[in-house]
């Protein structure tokens, strides 16, 4: 599904190398977790994959089902199946949540040459999906993320994911700012979306989220590289011993 080879990235504005040769392959249907200390480059990786401005790829490749992601505009990546659940979902005053969702869904369909969803079909689908995420009608009507609590914003991200049905979901610290109940709700939303054709890259500091969203593979990232890869037990090791031991081991 997703294949990253020797990815080197630096900030456009300053001569600062953030990613220093990331290699990562995510197979279809698998959940990969990336853990790592602050500043290791986890969020940068998620932004580079989704096409945010401000980063310069100096070396390496990233492909989705063989297609070069790095050559695409953010909206093209989205239509190709990339979805980034933001660590800090953006508030957009003046744009209704529902309008936003419908525009996004239909823009992607159009880009893929599919028929646009009718207003009635869209409404039916969004209501059903919102209900399972405990998102009420009022939240759908309000401007995108404006006045939403931390938990509501993250649930709204999952709703978008559910509506857009991406192939490759990248979740950037989705657990940050969530209480236990909200984390459970969000995880259930994500788990409901797991299937053979859909892959996940779950970025997190803590093992906690991985209790709910069970990963197939866990990577440890440090100083712009993946330094260790293992099974779910690797996350537990981090939880118990912190990153220091692992980093000492690989250095």
């Amino acid at each position: 599904m997703l294949e990253i080879k020797n990815l080197h990235v630096q900030l456009e504005d300053e001569d600062k190398q953030i990613l220093k040769g990331v290699d990562l392959t995510v197979e279809p249907g698998k959940v990969h977790a990336i853990m790592g200390p602050n500043g290791s480059g986890k969020s940068t990786l998620s932004y580079v994959l989704s096409g945010r401005d401000g980063y310069e790829v100096t070396e390496g490749t990233a492909t989705l089902e063989g297609e070069d992601l790095l050559d695409m505009e953010p909206e093209e990546r989205a239509a190709a199946g990339v979805f980034l659940a933001f660590q800090y979902p953006v508030e957009i005053p003046g744009v209704g949540n529902m309008t936003f969702l419908r525009t996004a869904v239909n823009a992607q369909r159009k880009a893929r040459g599919e028929e646009e969803l009718s207003a009635a079909d869209f409404l039916k689908e969004v209501r059903a999906k919102a209900k399972t995420l405990k998102i009420d009608a009022d939240m759908l009507k309000r401007p995108v993320n404006v006045g939403f609590s931390g938990g509501e914003k993250k649930r709204n991200e999952i709703l978008q994911m559910a509506m857009l049905e991406p192939k490759m979901c990248i979740m950037d610290e989705t657990d940050s700012g969530l209480d236990v109940d909200a984390m459970k709700l969000v995880s259930e939303g994500v788990n409901a979306l797991r299937n053979e054709g859909r892959s996940f890259l779950v970025i997190t500091h803590y093992q906690r989220l991985l209790d709910h969203i069970k990963p197939d593979v866990v990577h440890i990232m440090a100083d712009g590289r993946i330094v260790k890869t293992g099974g779910p037990e690797l996350a537990l090791e981090v939880e118990h011993n912190g990153y220091a031991d692992i980093l000492a081991e690989v250095n």
Partner: peptide, 23 residues
């Protein structure tokens, strides 16, 4: 970027934000 990352083309996204500004 948020709008574009959801698949909204840059021109449409710009127009959406412009209308939102006027709202």
């Amino acid at each position: 970027f948020y709008l574009r990352s959801r698949g909204v083309p840059v021109k449409d996204a710009t127009n959406m934000l412009t209308l939102a500004f006027l709202a």
